[in-house]
Nucleic acid binder design. Structure first.
Length: 271
DNA sequence: AAAGCGCCCTGAAGGC
DNA sequence: TGCCTTCAGGGCGCTT
């Protein structure tokens, strides 16, 4: 379940191993991911050097000579750098083999992930071009949320999970940020005032930044180690804690479905 | 334009 | 114990 902190952890963990490396070959064992993997990837990428690994929302962008590899981990995707002779396991769908005898291996049990070969400006790619601001950037703040919420009758929780509003806020961190900000997840987005949106924007930044910092502890032993380690180190106040007491001492955390997603909140301190 | 829902897929968990 | 069902989840894209 990679959310933005895990994608960022993956980016930071992989980049030192691949930056400056030339691609020897690309092996696509299973092209049927969220979208079919284009033949152009295996055809055009070999021989090119990977210069940097960047991130936009939950997409990783590997900058090569004439284009970018754009990767989304989906729900269950994992990316590892391993020795080139590492045995293939179930759901190892794509290898990008490097000339230093290591390879970048994409494993994805549920195949909600996706892999694209993009030429031209990757930010103009249809899936990236309409995305909202990065939550940790200065472009994202309470004023932005307030402005974008005008007239919106949807629940605030669904609103902050809308990638056109702000990227990278998945179900877990939406719940946590709303709890931190003391806002009820069902509150109508368009009827929340500026001050509360300031608090919510700060909560989103804080929750994500803390999660990235925790994910960072996984970096040191990134290769060969379960990528979910950082995730489980998070101390969740609301998510997944139905029936358990709110950390503020209010009462039991409640679970309700909002926008087809399980939502955990404290009915006392979130108003 | 905005909102709601179906769908892609597999593994884990729950029920009997 | 084992089979069957249900659920989880990101996010695109279709429908209303």
């Amino acid at each position: 379940m990679p959310e933005l902190p895990e994608v960022e952890t993956t980016r930071a963990g992989v980049e030192p191993h691949v930056a400056g490396q030339r691609v020897r070959t690309v092996i696509v064992r299973q092209p049927q991911l969220r979208w079919p993997v284009s033949d152009a990837l295996a055809r055009d990428l070999p021989g090119q050097t990977i210069h940097a690994v960047r991130r936009r929302a939950k997409y990783l962008l590997f900058a090569a000579d004439t284009g970018h590899v754009c990767l989304h981990l989906g729900m269950s995707g994992r990316l590892r750098v391993v020795p080139a002779d590492t045995p293939v396991e179930t759901h190892d769908h794509v290898d990008i083999v490097l000339e230093n005898d290591t390879l970048l291996r994409f494993n994805d049990a549920r195949r909600f992930g996706s892999l694209f070969w993009l030429t031209g400006d990757p930010h103009e790619f249809s899936l990236l071009s309409r995305l909202g601001p990065e939550p940790l950037s200065d472009a994202f703040d309470g004023a932005w949320l307030r402005a974008r919420s005008a007239g919106r009758r949807t629940a605030v929780k669904a609103f902050i999970m809308d990638a056109a509003v702000v990227v990278g806020v998945g179900n877990i961190y939406a719940c946590e940020a709303l709890h931190m900000a003391g806002i009820h997840p069902r509150r109508t987005a368009g009827r929340i005032g500026r001050a509360r949106y300031e608090r919510l924007a700060e909560a989103i930044k804080q929750v994500l930044a803390e999660a990235i910092a925790v994910g960072g502890t996984t970096l040191r032993d990134y290769i060969g180690v379960d990528g979910d380690t950082g995730y489980f180190q998070l101390s969740l106040a609301a998510y997944g804690r139905e029936g358990q007491p709110c950390p503020r001492g209010c009462g039991p955390i409640r679970r309700e479905v909002i926008g087809q997603r399980s939502t955990f909140f404290c009915p006392v301190c979130q108003t």
